[in-house]
């Protein structure tokens, strides 16, 4: 097979539409041709890249609840059925989301709203199960996944304790970015039923991460931490804890963030 023939089949092969025979012939060619191999690898990577970037999970639990309610309305007159577990989950999620919005509204008034992200104040065992913890950006409604660096940090290095429940390596599937003074941050806010949340920041084994540094800003303490791909700070703010993570390690987070939040 020539280069021309191999490249002619490029997209069909990448899209898994080529015949077994063509795939094998292309494979033989690629083993001998570095430049075609590079091109094929690139197009494979491009496809995965687009999917990863554009197919991030959206917050749809509320929508699911809404649809099921409409289905119920339409099927009115049928016998009343026991509420299935799925429905229950959807309703619980919707209720929790409403609660988040209420808290959000309160913080809007306080001027925190714009740059805050809530993690839903669910019950403790919510963090135990397989249900992913969702973060909702209440700033602009966007819902973007973290960068791989931050995901890695959250999944590998950060653990949190809610009451006595530890959530080491919990499955945070998303968070939100905001742009503050031309820098992109990912923010999380934790509140639980309006109660103070005790946040433990340490590694998976419950060992406090080395290198956490306490910085006094006025009468308030801010804790900073640097890891491979990013840096983070957290601080207590009323009944919640705010965390800011940035991929830019040179950024003076303790100076910028408190100013933004006027803590």
């Amino acid at each position: 097979m020539t280069c021309e023939e191999a490249l002619k089949r490029l997209f069909e092969v990448v899209d898994k539409e080529a015949s077994q025979y063509d795939v094998e012939e292309v494979q033989k060619h690629l083993e001998q041709c570095e430049s075609c191999m590079a091109r094929y690898e690139f197009e494979y990577m491009f496809k995965t890249f687009v999917k990863d970037k554009a197919a991030s999970p959206e917050k749809i639990d509320r929508l699911k609840g809404r649809i099921l309610n409409r289905i119920d309305e339409e099927s009115e007159g049928q016998s009343i059925r026991k509420m299935g577990p799925f429905r229950f989950t959807a309703v619980a999620v919707a209720a929790a989301f409403a609660l988040v919005l209420c808290i959000g509204a309160a913080f809007w008034a306080a001027g925190y709203y714009r740059y805050s992200v809530f993690i839903h104040p669910f019950e403790e065992n919510y963090f135990r199960g397989e249900i992913p913890v969702l973060a909702a950006n209440v700033g602009d409604g966007d819902f973007n996944p973290c960068s791989p660096e931050i995901m890695q940090f959250i999944n590998n290095d950060l653990s949190m304790t809610f009451g006595d429940v530890q959530t080491a390596g919990f499955n945070l599937i998303g968070s939100a970015f905001d742009t503050i003074r031309n820098h992109r941050f990912v923010h999380f806010r934790f509140v639980r039923g309006g109660m103070p949340v005790s946040l433990y920041v340490g590694d998976k084994n419950g060992v406090e991460l080395p290198g956490f540094e306490e910085i006094k800003i006025g009468s308030r303490s801010v804790y900073t931490y640097h890891c491979d791909g990013c840096q983070m700070i957290y601080w207590y703010c009323g009944k919640s804890i705010l965390i800011a993570v940035s991929e830019d390690k040179s950024l003076p987070l303790p100076e910028i963030i408190p100013a933004v939040y006027s803590i």
Binding site: M45, F49, V50, K53, A54, N144, P148
Partner: peptide
Amino acid sequence: FFAKVFDDDVK
């Protein structure tokens, strides 16, 4: 390139 382009840009 793949690492730097933002999700928002792809969307």
